[in-house]
Design a protein around this nucleic acid. Structure first.
Lengths: 202, 202
DNA sequence: CGGTGGTTATAACGTCGTTATGCAGTATAA
DNA sequence: TTATACTGCATAACGACGTTATAACCACCG
């Protein structure tokens, strides 16, 4: 029973994720999810308690993948390279998973807000950044002793660039040039932060 | 005729803005807008071509107010103080108009995307930032000669912090401490950018 | 055998943005 | 003045959305 029924659960989750990534959040309706999963709309309510429950699961899974990408980038040896590597991993993940990123950091699903349990899982992404900041501070590289503020500064800056790239609409520049500008901005930003947050001149 | 009919147009726009700012974008339905404006739902279609047209007008008006706030902050004398003042004005405006900011920079209205005309108006906000960067570059203060990348770096960093503050959900910290951390982060970020983007050590 | 709990499909509900229909009121032309 | 055309608006309806009430199915257990 359990193996068979959780098969439809997995089918629903897979269908929701597939629709989200290939067609966007607007196409992710309960009726379409059920059609792709090969069941009735009731399945979403039986196994996820409704659309928000399914979105919450997708949201949490996305943050876990995101955290994993950030933690993998922390394997670099030098602390400063660690932070730069994390910033690159952050941006790379967001560009590889643009639909998930919008789900995680913009309020694209009208009524949705993540569950407390999912928020705890999401906080681990921040811990990954904070860890790199602490490593750098332990070697006396940082100007500020406010580790949280330094970590949130890095998060904010990279997120801001990624977010503006994704929303896109408030600049009249066409697509190819915008991507090039974003790439140049990323390096300018990382270098400025590395120079401004650490004690040594770059 | 024209004066009377544009009165209902103004009433609809005012009702939409009022509902957005006081109750959020979810409450901004066509039926409620019409009820507050004292007309039928048809009025939204007669005067704005539909909900998206009304949202587009609100979006454009918000960007014009936003641009004005940025340009006013440019009146400071010293170029570096100009840039800092703009960053402060940016954050202050976003905290004073959180609902508009989410409308402008997150995709909170499901089907909406701004019109070409509105995007041109929005690009003037970027021009305000770019002007301050050019002034600073004219005095030889900047490390990089890529004015666009420098301006977009500043935009991204401030937007990122503001955006994370507004979405809020991916950290498990309670409200009062988060606001304090955001304030501390803002100063750390501005100082780091000022030091990292300019030639003189701060 | 009958009953029980879990899973499901069908059909419906209320709300959303949108629109077809029709009705007032006004301006223009004969 | 009458006829025509047009503008602005309300009513009611349409399709799509998330959700749910109803009832049927099915494995299990007395």
């Amino acid at each position: 029973m359990s193996s068979d029924s959780s098969a439809t659960q997995a089918a629903i989750l897979e269908a929701g994720l597939k629709i989200l990534t290939t067609e966007g959040h607007q196409a992710m309706t309960v009726r379409r999810i059920a059609a792709v999963a090969g069941c009735s709309t009731i399945g979403v309510y039986t196994w996820f308690g409704g659309k928000d429950g399914l979105v919450d699961t997708i949201w949490r899974n996305a943050f876990e993948s995101f955290t994993e990408a950030l933690e993998t980038a922390k394997l670099a040896t030098a602390p400063l390279a660690k932070a730069k590597g994390q910033a690159m991993a952050y941006r790379a993940w967001s560009m590889a998973h643009p639909m998930q990123y919008q789900l995680m950091f913009m309020k694209v699903i009208p009524g949705f807000s993540p569950s407390d349990e999912s928020i705890v899982a999401a906080a681990r992404s921040y811990e990954a950044l904070l860890g790199a900041v602490r490593d750098s501070a332990a070697k006396g590289e940082l100007n500020s002793s406010d580790h949280d503020a330094v970590a949130l500064t890095m998060w904010s800056c990279v997120h801001g660039l990624v977010s503006l790239d994704l929303v896109g609409g408030h600049t009249d520049q066409p697509e190819p040039e915008r991507k090039l500008l974003s790439d140049r901005t990323f390096t300018v930003m990382i270098d400025a932060l590395a120079a401004g947050l650490t004690k040594q001149k770059m």
